[in-house]
């Protein structure tokens, strides 16, 4: 697999996704809508204001989750880490829900709350894991914090009004249904966070050798840890604020990349970003077309597909997990 193949597949998926939906729009009209050609107003609106922002949001959010998954797996030295599994996503969702129920539903405040939530939970997981002494301790801490965050969201749903409840449930499931150009604009922070992660590619390679070995290679591991945590929390939390919790993309995608393109983070980070965007776009397109005009939240779909894949991975580890 090469980057050119990935980019081509992404382009193909974008075009296909633009034509598909409860109203099928031929490719010629899609082009006409984008280039300002001759097309009915309703089709122009569907393509430009409904499908295009949703597609871009899917690519940005999926890319952010997958690139963060790749970085977190490197940092945790464990190929089974995932932003949703270790509680980053649910921590972000909890703080987003807190803000929704207790504060005003203003998007920048919401995004900031999600970011703080993501940051706090990742930090907690790392800190507990460090005291536990092993990587497994970190993963287990993640599971515990994940459960706590989900319980917190559950509690909030009891004290929330009906309108708030709908939004809170939305965060737990994950959906791109709310996409508009404003959310795409907010999501543009995600590629910046991915760039920052990419800048740490060599250090991420070194840390897979072990913390001690990384230090012998001149890397200040505690500082690297902080940077990775901040950048991944940023990429994931913005995704969560805009679309809710989308599981398994961050786990599955870096794996597919490592299996086909190699393990250096020079490749894994950017390729995960593209493939993550591609997969979330495909999943979202499926979620809005299979039962059209009804829509399945895309988080359910990624969990349905990712769950079995995860089980397969665990079985293939053959005692290497060390838990």
């Amino acid at each position: 697999m090469r980057f050119s193949v990935l980019m081509f597949a992404l382009l193909l998926a974008i075009l296909t996704s633009l034509t598909l939906g409860s109203a099928a729009i031929p490719l010629a009209d899609v082009f006409a809508a984008i280039t300002g050609g001759d097309v009915t107003d309703i089709r122009r609106t569907i393509v430009l204001d409904i499908r295009l922002p949703r597609i871009l949001l899917a690519i940005l959010v999926g890319g952010g989750i997958a690139a963060s998954g790749a970085a977190i797996q490197g940092l945790f030295r464990n190929p089974l880490a995932d932003p949703a599994l270790i509680g980053v996503s649910s921590g972000a969702a909890l703080c987003a829900a807190l803000y929704l129920v207790l504060g005003a539903a203003l998007l920048p405040g919401l995004t900031a709350s999600a970011f703080v939530g993501g940051l706090l939970t990742t930090w907690l997981v790392l800190e507990i894991g460090r005291r536990g002494g092993t990587i497994s301790a970190m993963l287990l801490a993640g599971i515990a914090i994940n459960a706590l965050a989900i319980a917190g969201i559950g509690l909030l749903s009891y004290v929330s009004t009906d309108v708030q409840l709908r939004s809170v449930t939305f965060w737990a499931l994950g959906s791109l249904g709310g996409a508009d150009w404003y959310s795409v604009a907010v999501a543009l922070i995600i590629p910046i966070a991915i760039l920052f992660l990419f800048a740490e590619r060599h250090k991420l390679n070194a840390i897979t050798l072990g913390d001690q070995e990384a230090a012998y290679l001149g890397i200040s591991v505690p500082r690297l840890r902080i940077r990775i945590v901040v950048f991944t929390a940023l990429a994931v939390s913005i995704g969560v604020a805009l679309t809710g919790v989308i599981a398994f993309i961050g786990l599955v995608v870096p794996h597919l990349v490592r299996m086909t393109m190699g393990s250096t983070h020079q490749v894994v980070i950017p390729a995960s970003a593209i493939l993550g965007g591609l997969l979330l776009l495909i999943a979202d397109t499926l979620s809005r077309t299979v039962f059209a005009p009804a829509e399945v939240p895309v988080g359910i779909l990624t969990a349905l597909l990712g769950g079995p894949f995860f089980i397969l991975l665990i079985m293939r580890q053959k005692g290497k997990l060390g838990i």
Binding site: T208, L209, G262, S263, T264
Partner: peptide, 14 residues
């Protein structure tokens, strides 16, 4: 602790 499928050459590059 290295448990990622790097090539030998990539490990040496580290």
């Amino acid at each position: 602790a290295l448990d990622f499928p790097f090539t030998g050459l990539e490990v040496m590059h580290m």
